[in-house]
Nucleic acid binder design. Structure first.
Lengths: 197, 197
DNA sequence: TGCAAAAACGGACCCCGGGTCCGTATCGTC
DNA sequence: GACGATACGGACCCGGGGTCCGTTTTTGCA
């Protein structure tokens, strides 16, 4: 299936919508206060165009999220240490979690919107599966841990967007402190079973 | 402020609504598919009655949730070991988490609905604060752990309703296995720093 | 027991936001 | 420049949360 490329006005509009949504989401306090009509207006486009390009609200949010996430994904899949695949698991796991946390801190609105989108929380967004797979694989190389799949879920849960928002947003916890807490928590889990610093 | 008690028809209707909502939520697949009008109809009551009694959708869900949770809360606050306050922290923490997990397994629809209600996830429902407080206090009595407040958040995140739903619902993981995973995870965290079994 | 004020009732109604329809404008191609 | 294919846009539909207000029930008091 050749998948012929879109007309150029369609491409232009798609980009405009993406930019408009990004700007609107970042501007206001809550993402859910931004209506699809708002986005269309900001982009200077009809509502139908927006739905034609992204299917529905969730689609738009996912597209934005995926775009922002791409560089991080690339860094994880083929980048240098400590995020890249050549890193020993014991260093890579905390690096992955820190990367996720930082990403969510930098993209709070989006992450929040995505994780609230539709029902089922973040667990149906395909990005979640990817993170989970990656993290699980790394965890499996560390001996003595509980079930890697569950552990990966539990660790990822500690970086849920609404928790991050609760801590960094409502409670004003500084970025560095949050990162330090998560790092300490992760270390505690990974270092159990013998060695003490 | 004497807070005179409600008229008896109001009380009866309140109970009827609660019962109707409970039944409807449990019956259907997704909670969000149940409309307020549905609940009113099932209860044999006008919509306004429903809103008068509970304020809004979230209020109704919270009321249901709180009612279900009460016995657990009592068991934690004044019950016997291992849930009650007299339990040593090292045993109480896993007991608390297991209790939460079981509760969410037994009340999946409700927990899911509550944690999705409004924005901000579960972190604005007052029950969360209560659990967090309780868990944090217990954690503080275990030496060598990372920041107790953060750890409590992280552990609670591992019992998020949508994660439970994902594992127990979509992936069909059996109850006992899920409990075992969580227990192992918790144990790993608590037992770190020296002693090996 | 009778009566009036207070409290609650109910369902028609409003509002707003996601998603769609279809007549019109634009693009790409020959 | 002409014609089919593709995209546009905003009026429109629909469904659900939440409210208004005329009517009914309860309650407190004589």
């Amino acid at each position: 299936m050749p998948e012929r490329r879109p007309r150029k006005d369609a491409a232009r509009n798609r980009a405009a919508v993406l930019a408009a949504a990004d700007s609107l989401f970042a501007r206001g306090e809550s993402v859910e206060a931004v209506t699809m009509a708002d986005v269309a207006a900001e982009a200077g486009v009809g509502k139908a165009t927006l739905f034609r390009a992204f299917g529905d609200r969730t689609g738009l949010i996912q597209a934005l999220y995926a775009a922002r996430l791409r560089p991080v994904m690339e860094a994880v899949e083929e980048g240098p240490s400590p995020l890249g695949p050549a890193t020993p698991a014991r260093q890579r796991v905390p690096a992955l979690l820190d990367a996720i946390l930082c990403f969510k801190l930098d993209n709070r609105h989006l992450a929040l919107a995505l994780e609230e989108a539709g029902s089922g929380g973040p667990y149906q967004a395909e990005q979640y599966d990817w993170w989970h797979h990656t993290l699980q694989a790394a965890l499996e190389e560390i001996p003595g841990l509980p079930d890697a799949a569950f552990t990966a879920h539990a660790l990822l849960a500690a970086t849920r967007a609404d928790l991050v928002e609760h801590l960094a947003g409502q409670q004003q916890m500084p970025r560095q402190q949050l990162r330090a807490h998560l790092a300490a928590y992760t270390a505690r889990l990974l270092d159990a079973g013998g060695q003490i610093g």
